[in-house]
Design a protein around this nucleic acid. Sequence first.
DNA 1: GTCTATAGTCGGATAGAC
DNA 2: GTCTATCCGACTATAGAC
Lengths: 226, 226
Amino acid sequence: MVEKTQAAATGGYRKGEKTRQRILDAALKAFGEASFTAVTTRRIAQAGGVSLPTLQYYFGDKEGLYRACAEALVDRYRSHTAAAAAKARQALQQDFAPETARLHLKALIRALAGFLVGTKEAQRWAQFVARELRDPGPAFDILYKRLWQPGVDVTSRLVARLLGVSEGDPAARIKALLLISSVLAFQSGRGIALRTMHWSSIGPNELAMVLASLDDQIDAIGARRS
Amino acid sequence: MVEKTQAAATGGYRKGEKTRQRILDAALKAFGEASFTAVTTRRIAQAGGVSLPTLQYYFGDKEGLYRACAEALVDRYRSHTAAAAAKARQALQQDFAPETARLHLKALIRALAGFLVGTKEAQRWAQFVARELRDPGPAFDILYKRLWQPGVDVTSRLVARLLGVSEGDPAARIKALLLISSVLAFQSGRGIALRTMHWSSIGPNELAMVLASLDDQIDAIGARRS
DNA sequence: GTCTATAGTCGGATAGAC
DNA sequence: GTCTATCCGACTATAGAC
């Protein structure tokens, strides 16, 4: 049996698609700014310019809307990092030189950081993801399996190559995790990072400084101690 | 005019002190596990074995209780890291050798990581802090000024010494921020870290691996590129 | 100090008209 | 598809007895 909401979600509609998108955008914004419980469906409906039942018509209930946000977010994120990720994966299959892995790792991190810092929307998405992964809720599985896990996997495989160890090596995974956390420190933790750095915003100059430090961190992987 | 709640909070009471503490413990646990809005005063009261008005009697309202939790948390945290922080500060005044700074930095990070990973309580505190700093609420100022800022300051001063730059140098602050974020990745982000690493818990072996990677990261500061 | 009882508010979800 | 009107439950906070 197919639920109404499923039918609506699957697409194939013409009239309601625009409304659905408006609601989704409003929800994505709201859930990016505050937690699941802190956000009210009333506010989302108002922001989307619809009434409460309309929201329920398209997404069933609050959790359904929340999950739909996660799905949408993953899709948009993937379309932005697909290029760099594909290149990295390709390199992992064909090339075995550690230094090439380093370049791909830098490119990957750069793509991630650039994307995250780039748009105001991406900042909210990062907060959404960070919040959901830290305090697992209705969208945890979606975000973990489709976003976090693939990202960590590619990264740790590149790191493993750099260290000259096998792909599943824990040390490589740790370093990958630390690297990703470092990027996220400036995004999901953007507010606190700004205050800490005494910056009013993250512009080109600030981004360059962050990227330089991230490059340092990548350069340190597999390097001999001084 | 002194409010009742102020008088109760200030101490000087005998009978109610124990009750107050029970409520505070229950609240600290609850707010460690979920966000301000997600936690209900009812549950806290029940967990603390008191009725709702009792809670209000001691802390005024929900926000007051929340702030009291932040204060208590900061105090406990400080008593645990005071030793290492004091040593580091002392060294900053007396000693100018970069390599000594490196040792103090490692000790500081080690103390932080060990404390955080050590007790189950500390894990919840870390979540509380992370949540509040990411999504500023009623306790933001307390946690930022009394916990985050002092920590980042000492760390970045040590890093600056290592890099041979002035204390306010942005590059040093960035590296300090990344370093602290790395530690927190395994604490406030403990759940996701466990899953990522395929660990069931963070025991002595796991902690050793994390610390090794953090040491690597510290070793890389101020080192020449390979 | 701590309780029972309750007021007042708000949020999620539904019924049913159009 | 989208609305207005409404229900119901849960929550914070208060009044007032003991």
